[in-house]
């Protein structure tokens, strides 16, 4: 089936099997391997991307369901060599160790900040409930998102 997706502002067209998962489309067809595959059972959140601006788990969406939609992956965040505030927050607050969960964690944080630009610590923890990290103990991730929220709120003002 022929589908067309806008990924990080760029149009991608391909003829795919209906059973192809969105995460496989991103990694194997669009060659955007920043989106990781973790549990494959919609629990770990490693494959999180934004689909029409909402955070979703791309291991549990068919590529054909995303036909005509906009997708934002980790590769689409930095612009002109400048890190996105959430990326910067993870860098500055050591929000990662092995890095496997990081793209999904960052995209889930972006999804959260689209809905709530000044989340409390509890709201950040709840917003990242669908993402697992086995290294950090989460504290630095929460700090990273708090710092990103502050920077983004500052930019809005």
């Amino acid at each position: 089936m022929k589908i067309s997706l806008e990924i990080n502002g760029k149009k991608h067209e391909a003829d795919v099997e209906p059973r192809l998962l969105l995460v496989h489309f991103l990694r194997d067809v669009a060659n955007l391997t920043g989106t990781h595959i973790g549990c494959e059972t919609s629990l770990c959140g490693a494959c999180t991307v934004l689909l029409d601006d909402a955070a979703i788990k791309s291991c549990t969406v068919l590529a054909v369901q995303a036909d005509g939609c906009r997708v934002t992956t980790i590769e689409g965040l930095a612009s002109a060599g400048e890190l996105h505030p959430v990326q910067k927050g993870f860098w500055e607050h050591h929000g990662l160790q092995c890095g496997y969960c990081t793209p999904g964690m960052i995209m889930a944080a972006c999804g959260l900040l689209r809905e709530n630009l000044s989340p409390s610590e509890a709201e950040i923890r709840e917003g990242l409930e669908g993402n697992l990290c086995r290294c950090t103990g989460y504290q630095n991730i929460v700090d990273a998102v708090e710092s990103a929220a502050r920077e983004m709120a500052g930019a809005v003002k």
């Binding site: 788990k57 959260l112 917003g127 669908g130």
Partner: peptide, 8 residues
């Protein structure tokens, strides 16, 4: 579930 699951 979680936010991503609730979105879909």
């Amino acid at each position: 579930g979680d936010p991503q699951v609730r979105n879909r």
